Amino acid sequence: RTVITEEFKVPDKMVGFIIGRGGEQISRIQAESGCKIQIASESSGIPERPCVLTGTPESIEQAKRLLGQIVDRCRN
């Protein structure tokens, strides 16, 4: 099985929602997708915060879908 790493950007102001209380939301996304997610600790003042996704191509797609759902929910 091929493990790859891909960068994905999330809106900086939504990082708190993505991580969740005590990290529970990000842990759930990682468990559900099987993908490791590392969010940069600093956005360096830019509106997007880079995340590094590591896993199989399928797990990365699943993680991006779950992250996208959270971002959409927070935008509305």
Rank of each mutant, 00 (worst) to 15 (best):
R1Y: 06
R1N: 15
R1V: 11
R1S: 11
R1E: 09
T2Q: 14
T2H: 10
V3P: 06
V3N: 15
V3D: 06
V3H: 05
I4F: 07
I4R: 09
I4T: 11
I4N: 08
T5K: 09
T5G: 02
T5S: 08
E6D: 08
E6C: 13
E6P: 00
E7Q: 09
E7W: 07
E7V: 12
F8V: 09
F8W: 12
F8G: 02
F8R: 01
F8D: 03
K9Q: 14
K9T: 10
K9P: 14
V10Q: 01
V10F: 10
V10D: 02
P11G: 03
P11L: 03
P11C: 03
D12R: 07
D12C: 09
D12S: 12
K13G: 12
K13A: 10
K13P: 09
M14W: 09
M14D: 06
V15G: 05
V15M: 09
V15Q: 04
V15E: 04
G16R: 12
G16L: 05
G16V: 04
G16Y: 05
F17S: 12
F17I: 10
F17Y: 13
I18M: 08
I18T: 03
I18K: 03
I18D: 05
I18S: 03
I18P: 04
I19L: 13
I19W: 07
I19E: 08
G20I: 01
G20R: 04
G20C: 02
R21Q: 13
R21E: 14
R21W: 04
G22Y: 04
G22R: 13
G22V: 04
G23Q: 11
G23T: 07
G23F: 06
E24I: 12
E24H: 15
E24K: 15
Q25K: 12
I26V: 13
S27Q: 09
S27V: 07
S27W: 04
S27F: 05
R28C: 04
I29L: 12
Q30T: 06
Q30A: 10
Q30E: 15
Q30R: 10
Q30D: 01
A31F: 06
A31T: 11
A31M: 09
A31V: 10
A31C: 12
A31Q: 14
E32L: 11
E32D: 14
E32F: 05
E32W: 05
E32P: 00
G34P: 01
G34Q: 10
C35P: 01
C35S: 03
C35F: 00
C35D: 01
C35W: 00
C35M: 00
K36G: 06
K36H: 14
I37F: 02
I37S: 01
I37A: 01
I37D: 01
I37V: 10
Q38K: 13
Q38D: 07
I39M: 09
I39A: 02
I39W: 05
I39H: 02
A40S: 13
S41C: 12
S41Y: 04
S41K: 15
S41E: 14
E42P: 12
E42A: 11
S43T: 11
S43N: 06
S43Q: 10
S44L: 13
S44C: 09
G45F: 06
G45C: 07
G45K: 07
G45S: 10
G45W: 05
I46S: 13
I46C: 15
I46Q: 14
I46A: 15
P47Y: 06
P47K: 13
E48D: 14
E48W: 10
E48N: 07
R49K: 07
R49I: 05
P50W: 05
P50A: 11
C51W: 05
C51Q: 01
C51Y: 02
C51F: 14
V52G: 03
V52F: 06
V52A: 12
L53K: 00
L53P: 00
L53Y: 00
L53D: 00
L53S: 00
L53A: 02
T54M: 08
T54L: 05
G55D: 00
G55S: 00
T56G: 03
T56P: 07
T56S: 13
P57R: 13
P57W: 09
P57T: 14
E58S: 10
E58R: 08
E58Y: 05
E58V: 06
S59D: 07
I60N: 04
I60R: 03
I60K: 01
I60S: 00
I60E: 00
E61R: 11
E61C: 08
Q62R: 11
Q62W: 07
Q62G: 10
Q62A: 13
A63R: 00
A63I: 02
A63M: 02
A63N: 00
K64F: 00
K64Q: 04
K64R: 07
K64E: 02
K64D: 00
R65T: 13
R65H: 07
L66Q: 09
L66C: 06
L66D: 06
L67M: 07
L67N: 00
L67S: 00
G68Y: 11
G68K: 12
G68C: 09
G68A: 09
Q69P: 05
Q69C: 08
I70P: 02
I70A: 15
I70Y: 15
I70N: 03
I70G: 03
V71C: 08
V71E: 09
V71I: 13
D72P: 05
D72F: 06
D72Q: 08
D72A: 10
D72T: 07
D72N: 05
R73L: 07
C74F: 07
C74P: 10
C74A: 15
R75L: 11
R75E: 15
N76T: 10
N76I: 04
N76C: 09
